[in-house]
Simulated scan of single mutants.
Amino acid sequence: MDHLLGALGVAIVVFASTDVDDLFVLLGFFADPKFRVRQIIIGQYLGIAALFGFSVLASLLVFVVPAAYIGLLGLAPIYFGLKRLWEIWNGIDTDDNPEDHEKASAGHGNIVAVALVTIANGGDNISVYTPLFATRSAYEILAFGCVFAALTAVWLGVAHALVNHPKLGAPIRRHGYRVVPFVLIAIGVLILYEAGTVVFFWS
């Protein structure tokens, strides 16, 4: 029991320290009228689940992907940031109609976009999770997964609450969607830089 409680404590600290920047990304998504709440929630959980699953698999196989290759994930937020800039520049309508099959397809694209950005933004987390899981029992890894799922809900709740705050919500919604593309591009560039991807492939 003590080991399990200790694992829960470690899981909380690890998630909070490695995913704090994800909170700001969620603020941008919630502020963007193009994205529906359901799409953000599904995309976020898919992204977190992918990071968790890959880290568990890597820990079982004692397999660590070189940071330079993980850094390639940074291309995803750069792509979505540039795409969103183009849409804003051209004044493309961001309203979704659930009964419109074309817009429904776009909705699925939004889910994929959120998931990919979450994975890219948390790509470096794999290097933290993998050795951590490699030294844990199956029950402790399961506990980590439960904590990550619960804290993901907290992250989503906090971001949604801030965007809908009586005082803070209005300016975030008014300007947030314009900031999102630049945030995504900056995150992508930072991921490529910190992972040494550009230097690795250039050399």
Results as ranks from 00 to 15, higher is better:
132 L>R: 09
66 P>R: 03
129 Y>G: 02
133 F>E: 05
134 A>D: 05
88 I>A: 03
172 I>N: 13
144 F>V: 02
166 P>F: 02
43 G>Y: 03
138 A>N: 05
199 V>I: 11
139 Y>K: 06
21 D>A: 04
108 H>L: 15
117 V>P: 00
38 R>L: 13
201 F>N: 08
79 Y>M: 01
110 N>D: 12
139 Y>G: 03
99 E>R: 13
109 G>H: 02
179 V>G: 04
22 D>K: 04
201 F>C: 09
165 H>D: 15
148 F>T: 01
6 G>Q: 11
33 P>E: 05
87 E>C: 01
129 Y>Q: 03
168 L>Q: 09
164 N>T: 14
2 D>Y: 05
182 F>S: 09
199 V>K: 10
167 K>N: 11
145 G>C: 09
172 I>M: 14
198 V>Q: 01
14 V>R: 02
103 K>D: 12
70 I>K: 03
60 L>W: 08
142 L>K: 00
155 W>I: 04
113 A>R: 08
95 D>I: 10
31 A>H: 07
59 S>K: 04
63 F>H: 11
91 G>C: 00
80 F>K: 01
32 D>S: 15
104 A>V: 13
132 L>F: 11
12 I>P: 02
95 D>R: 11
51 L>E: 02
86 W>D: 09
183 V>F: 14
185 I>T: 06
176 G>L: 04
195 A>V: 04
200 F>C: 06
40 I>V: 15
94 T>A: 06
74 G>Q: 00
95 D>L: 04
137 S>F: 03
187 I>G: 00
132 L>Y: 09
182 F>N: 03
101 H>S: 13
87 E>I: 02
34 K>E: 14
100 D>E: 06
197 T>V: 05
80 F>E: 03
51 L>D: 00
60 L>F: 10
97 N>K: 11
53 G>F: 02
25 V>S: 10
